[in-house]
């Protein structure tokens, strides 16, 4: 029980920053909040709504996302899409991610050598 909590805590810590990466990667196409949540969930990024929705607003405020209200349908929805700045950041973050992956791998190879 205690070990599971410990594991869950560390996994959460490890995943915290990857939500931004996942959003930037997904929002090359426009999504509205709930649809993005479901999409990420299916893709294996289980995010809570109370984390994701404020995050989208923060990323928009930082100029990484743009948004547009679609009022054509019965329920108005706010669609988010990556801005050029967001795409640049996405590339950098992805590179960072691969660098980290490589670093972890080389650490583990060093251990087994």
């Amino acid at each position: 029980m205690k070990e599971n909590e410990l594991l869950a805590g560390h996994i959460q810590e490890l995943r915290r920053g990857t939500v931004v990466l996942a959003c930037l990667a997904t929002l090359k196409r426009p999504y509205y909040g709930y649809a993005l949540l479901e999409y990420l969930d299916e893709a294996g990024f289980s995010v809570d709504g109370n984390t994701l929705y404020p995050l989208l607003r923060r990323l928009e405020k930082q100029g990484l996302l743009t948004s547009e209200w679609d009022t054509a349908e019965a329920r108005p929805r706010k669609f988010y899409k990556v801005s050029p700045d967001g795409e640049a950041l996405h590339e950098q973050l992805t590179r960072e991610w691969h660098a980290l992956d490589g670093a972890v791998r080389s650490l583990e190879q060093g251990e087994t050598r």
Binding site: Y32, G33, Y34, E38, Y53, R57, R75, P76, R77, K78
Partner: peptide, 20 residues
């Protein structure tokens, strides 16, 4: 400047979740 916009989006999001 943000309150009404957040309200509108949040309401839609809750309705989406309820619908699902």
């Amino acid at each position: 400047d943000t309150g009404p916009d957040v309200a509108r989006e949040l309401r839609g999001t809750v309705l989406d979740a309820v619908e699902a």
